[in-house]
Design a protein around this nucleic acid. Sequence first.
RNA 1: CGCGGGAUAGUGGAGCGGCACCACGUCGGGCUCAUAACCCGAAGGACGAAGGUUCGAAUCCUUCUCCCGCAACCA
Length: 519
Amino acid sequence: MAGRKFYLTTAIDYVNARPGLHHAYEKTGADALARFHRQRGDEVFFLTGTDENATKNEQAAKEEGLTTRELVDRNAAEFQRLCQVWAISHDRFIRTSVDKDHKKGVQEFVRRWVENGDVYPSTYEGLYCTRCEAFYEEDDLVDGRCQFHPNNPDAVQRVKEENYFFRLSRYQDALRELYANDPGFTVPDIRRNEVLGWFERGLRDVSVSRGRNLEWGIPWPGEPGHTIYVWFDALINYVTGIGFGTDEKTFARWWPADVHVIGKDISRFHCIYWPAMLLAAGVPLPKRVFVHGFLENRAGRLSKSSGNTIDPFDFATAYGVDAARYLVLREAPFEKDSPISTDAFAQRYNADLANGLGNLVSRTLAMVARYFDGSVPAPCEGASERAVREVAEAALRDHDAAAEKLAFADALAAVFTLVDEANKHFQRTQPWQLAKDPAKRAALGGSLYAGLEAVRIVAYLLAPYTPGTSARIAEQLGVPAPDAARWAEVAKWGVLREGHRVRAGEALFPRLETPTAAA
RNA sequence: CGCGGGAUAGUGGAGCGGCACCACGUCGGGCUCAUAACCCGAAGGACGAAGGUUCGAAUCCUUCUCCCGCAACCA
């Protein structure tokens, strides 16, 4: 796969609240995939950003005594800071209310619908919650109030307006065909099955504009007073972010997306609406939509509306960025829902990072320093060394197979089989005993060499998840930084040369003595 | 009967027709190079409830209970 282009996206985030751990989770998963592909030699474009054109931002701003612009800028900055703190390596952070190319591209996209006869005006009358920005049926309301905003008596209003509707129904057969021909379009299967279920109930045309002379939002082309419904403007970011409607050369280079990484709550939009929207605009479809699961705790799911989020900035500070990234991806398999808890994170930190990886690096380099004065000994492969080598070779294979599928918990587990094997290897060969007998010098060197190679390979394999730590280990080993190394040259056993200098460093992951206090 | 997913050792998971497995935690032992870390061993569950199919069921079927998600708020 070396040398191919790889374009991936995350969902863009609503700016009506602060970032939660779930935002960091999605971005970290996507980031690990981006870094994984770069490391294997692919050319990667990684897009993330904020979804800023929701009308509710106007109201939220009013309540805080700010202009809409001020509120949106302030909150968008928090999401950008999140990306910095969590070491997200995106190539572009798109802002839908700011970036001119987005606005222009969206209007071009809609213009194509119009040309294609896929939108038509129609009168819509119904109960509209201005807080949700959604229409509801009478049955959905509780005492005449929105069930999600019961404290806002004025939130629900009866509105009647001219809207443009998108002919979603026209694409039902094309979408069925897509799902029949390409079972991998939506993964994992559990999410695909949900999508198939939606088809069974049929697809209705959807309103894609708002006609209430809104100040905020992207104007409908040639139709003053109408704005493009925020959901549709948001989805189009995936093409405008790489030049659709403004830079066709760049667009042609990156599109179609190799994968859209999203949460399961918005799979309807990405798995049904988005492909139909693209078909209507005459744009090729993305290759895959990966629907990740949710972080859950006993207080219920983590979400903006329930307000039980773990602060992602505090979390990263408490554990360190690399550990934080490792913990969310290891504890919460990307492909499904997972319960999380601060206790589980803390235990995982000590077990895997402090006692496992950190201690292995520490003991290995300490022994090389003590017994060989920091100079790499000659390889000397006995039964134990061979076992380590074989586990390393399996880890390289198994990691990549899992990472390709975005199964990061499995991918990380594969890497840690090598950490465990190296620790067992030292117990088997007992270099501290061999060191007492000058006649066993070669065996001693061989044991430590195998340990060093294990550490080196682990560091490279973990680079997509723990970029800072991997770089530190590479530095201690005096080998090329993970960002700079050619994968084919480092991803194999036996690269370190006899006499090469290595040095011990500070503890990579200090053990937490009171685990529960960490977060 | 709106659709879908679950219920397995203290916790989190795997297994999905044939001796109930893994990780963490706990307990006991060993080692001493290392971040009181590492290694070895043990205890602990008969798999939500009831019924059925089968030589044999966490694993298939039926009913039930309880969770969760979706059904134009939400990653």
